[in-house]
Amino acid sequence: MKLELRNVKRDFVSRSGCHYTCIEDVNMEIHSGEFHLLYGASGSGKTTLLNIMTGMLRPTEGQVLLDGTEIQGKKEQELALLRRKSFGYAMQNASLLNSLTVAENISLPLTFFSGTGTAEEQLKKAGLWKVRNSYPSELSGGEYRRCTILRALVIQPDFLFADEPTANLDDTNAEIIIEMLEHLREQGTAVVVATHDKRFMEDSRQIHELG
């Protein structure tokens, strides 16, 4: 599968009413089994780009194509369907529902959309079995990030998008996350990570510098 961005631009209006351009002329091709890094400082537009790729934001100009079909013009319902089946998205601050336990959060997409039951196996593999009955607010930073990734990959998506998955994590926890993502890529999923963490830097990964 291929996700393609052509001349993508996104403008915003600030609270004071000023228009400003966040990203401009972004061109990118993402294929299955690739690892892409959106690299840049805070405010460089990494999250905006991820949101555009997942259909959570529409570009002001340009095209987002999935296997040659434009997605930015799709209806909200169709975009939701796409995120349900093909896109796993681990947002930076909004990836788990606080009112559900870890186990419930992770199996939520399964029980709702594919009816395939719980994510017991995945929880064990990710070392989260012990905290399965805890609430997100009770998790450590590392556990929380692992949960967000696990929640995104549990549907076995074609594309996995992760926003700053290793932010504020120590090396050990960052390593676990990077390994999880790498493992996913090896299975054929395209992984796109927005980060400014140098620990992701590796020659095999495609780096897109923003800002």
Partner: peptide, 16 residues
Amino acid sequence: YHEFACMSSMGFSFRQ
């Protein structure tokens, strides 16, 4: 809002 965005990222539609 945070929660709605989270649900949306999971694939829940606006209507849901």
